[in-house]
Structure formats: C-alpha cells, structure tokens
Simulated assay, not measured.
Amino acid sequence: GKGRIFDAAEATAVAYSRALDQGGPGLALRLRHALFNRLVYGKLRSALGGNITHGISGGAPLNVHLCHFFRGIGFLILEGYGLTESTAAATVNRPESLKIGTVGLPLPGVTVRIADDGEVLLRGDLVLSGYRNNETAGKEALDSDGFLRTGDLGSLDETGHLRITGRKKEILVTAGGKNVAPAPLEQRIGQHPLVGQAMLVGDQRPFIAALITLDPEAFATWLKTNGRPATATPSDLANDPTLVAEIQQAVDAANATVSHAEAIKKFVILPYDFTIAGGELTPSLKVKRNVVMERFADTVEAIYATPRVTT
C-alpha cells in the first residue's frame, strides 16, 4: 500500500512541477498536491533536515524527471555547469529564473557562445589562461577570441539558458553518415526505474543500438513482483519477454524524442550494473565508454551480426 501511495505522490509531484512551467496547476492537481504534501512530501523534507529549500547539482547531467520530482515536493535543485578550466561553475540556474532541463544562465562576467559545430564556448575572468608547463595545450584550449573550447555540445534558448546535449568527442556517426548525440537518449532511458545505466553504440555501424544494465535493487523488486526466482540474474532473464517488454518501453520513450535515423534499433541487457569499483564508472558516475566497449566487444559484435530489429 505504501508503494502505491508513493507512486501516486511521485506522479503528482512531477505533474505539479511541470504545470508550474505551463501556466500553473489546476484546482484538481493543487488538491492532490496538498494531500500528498501532508502524507509524503513533508516527511521527505524532514528526512532532508526539515529546513533545506535549495540544492545545487553539477558534475554530471541531472535527470529531468528527478528534478521535477524534487521541485514538486518543495525542494529546488539548481543545476549548473562548468569545467576545471573555467574554475568550476560558469552557468547556473537561479530560483527566480529556473528552467529545468537547462544548466541555467551565465554567471556575471561570463560569456557563452555556441560554435558553428554546436560546441559550447566560454569566456570570462574565470577561464584559464593556459596549462602549467604545457603552452601548446593552452593554445589549443582557447580560440582566437579567448573562448574556452569546452568539448561539450549545447544550445542557448531565447532567454539565454544553456542546454547541454552531449560531448563533442562522443558523437556517434553511423555508417550512413547520421550524427547522433548519445547523452539525451541515454538519460531518457535511464529514467526508467529498472535501468541502471544505458550506453549507446553505433559509431560507423549501420544503426544505433544500446547496452543497458539493470539497477540491482529495482531488479530484485521486479523479480518478486513478477513471480520470478529471487536468485535469478539479469543474464538468466535477458530474453524474458516481460522484462524485455518493460525495457522496450524505456527505449521507445527515448526514440520518441528523435528521428527514425537516430532511433535505437536494438538493445541488449547486460549481466551486471556498472560501478566505480568495477571500473566502468568514474568517481563522478560518468560511464567509461572505452572500458565498456572493451569488456563487451563480443556483445556489440553480436548485435550487428544478427538481423536488424526495427522498433
């Protein structure tokens, strides 16, 4: 019963937050929100200490669904962006100008520009003047106007909010010449409760595919809910129709945001989740793509050795 109440409270919090960006919540949504504020949200805020109202997120992309959830319970997470070369934050959302899904507006004295190829460029007093004992690298990092080449891809909206869409060096180029930024699709798949990590493959391949891991705790709950043996592993159930159909929903949701040429045509459920200890994740929880590609090279080859599946 508590699980169902929390699921309803979560959905209401997300809907309430989204409505704040679309003219405000209606009466029915406000009443549901008030009810769950008493039943659930107040307890969550108490677990955070009772007085906290804002938090700042950086270092890795923040899940949009999660950000809406926290705002819906009364806790604003302000996502920012920057690099070591920009002395940490260069842009950040503010409470009065929050746009979920973006990393906010430039800090005072910072100029953001988007290059012709989509790369985010930064200029300001907080940007490095060079690298110690490496003059060549310093010249490569800055363009002729003094803008820092971040290596990230992004866009600026009509209000000047910056949205990061991926890493320039991580762009996948299919055999047909289609450029695909993996990060947005990976993040969308990762919103599914069962998914631990998602990593797209397809560079110089005929289509885009995904390597997907299962969250251990969510998987244990799924086994119990669906009457599967508690000792079953992701490898045991990698072809289980019910499990595959559920992960397919996550893939379909991601595919709905891109063109058919950019869509994920096949996916594979990997035998274990990525971890820092296992070497697949950095300390900031970014996937080490080269490590994963090396460890699952045979899996990737098998994807493209079998007939293509259109989703």
Rank of each mutant, 00 (worst) to 15 (best):
3 G>L: 10
7 D>V: 09
9 A>K: 13
19 A>P: 13
19 A>Q: 06
25 P>E: 08
26 G>A: 10
29 L>W: 12
29 L>C: 07
34 A>N: 13
38 R>Q: 15
38 R>W: 15
38 R>G: 15
43 K>R: 15
49 G>I: 13
50 G>D: 05
53 T>N: 00
58 G>W: 08
60 A>V: 00
66 L>V: 01
66 L>E: 09
68 H>P: 10
75 F>Y: 06
76 L>T: 06
77 I>D: 02
79 E>I: 05
79 E>P: 08
82 G>E: 11
85 E>G: 01
85 E>A: 00
85 E>C: 03
87 T>A: 14
91 T>W: 10
92 V>T: 12
93 N>M: 15
94 R>Y: 14
100 I>H: 02
101 G>F: 14
102 T>Y: 04
109 G>L: 10
110 V>T: 11
111 T>F: 01
112 V>L: 00
115 A>H: 00
121 L>Q: 03
126 L>P: 04
127 V>G: 10
128 L>Y: 03
128 L>W: 04
130 G>W: 00
132 R>V: 13
133 N>L: 13
135 E>D: 07
137 A>T: 09
142 L>P: 07
146 G>C: 09
146 G>R: 11
148 L>H: 02
150 T>G: 01
150 T>Y: 07
151 G>H: 06
151 G>V: 04
152 D>R: 05
153 L>I: 15
160 G>V: 15
160 G>Q: 10
163 R>M: 05
164 I>P: 01
165 T>Q: 04
168 K>P: 02
170 E>G: 06
170 E>Q: 09
171 I>S: 01
176 G>E: 08
182 P>F: 10
186 E>Y: 13
187 Q>T: 07
190 G>P: 01
198 A>M: 05
205 R>I: 12
206 P>V: 10
208 I>C: 07
208 I>E: 01
209 A>Y: 15
209 A>N: 13
211 L>Q: 07
211 L>T: 05
215 D>G: 14
224 K>W: 09
226 N>R: 09
228 R>M: 12
229 P>S: 05
230 A>E: 10
231 T>M: 10
234 P>F: 01
239 N>V: 11
239 N>T: 12
247 I>Q: 07
252 D>S: 12
255 N>L: 05
260 H>R: 15
269 I>V: 08
272 Y>P: 05
273 D>F: 11
274 F>E: 05
276 I>A: 14
288 K>G: 03
291 V>A: 10
292 V>E: 09
293 M>F: 11
294 E>T: 15
295 R>W: 13
304 Y>N: 06
310 T>C: 14
311 T>L: 13
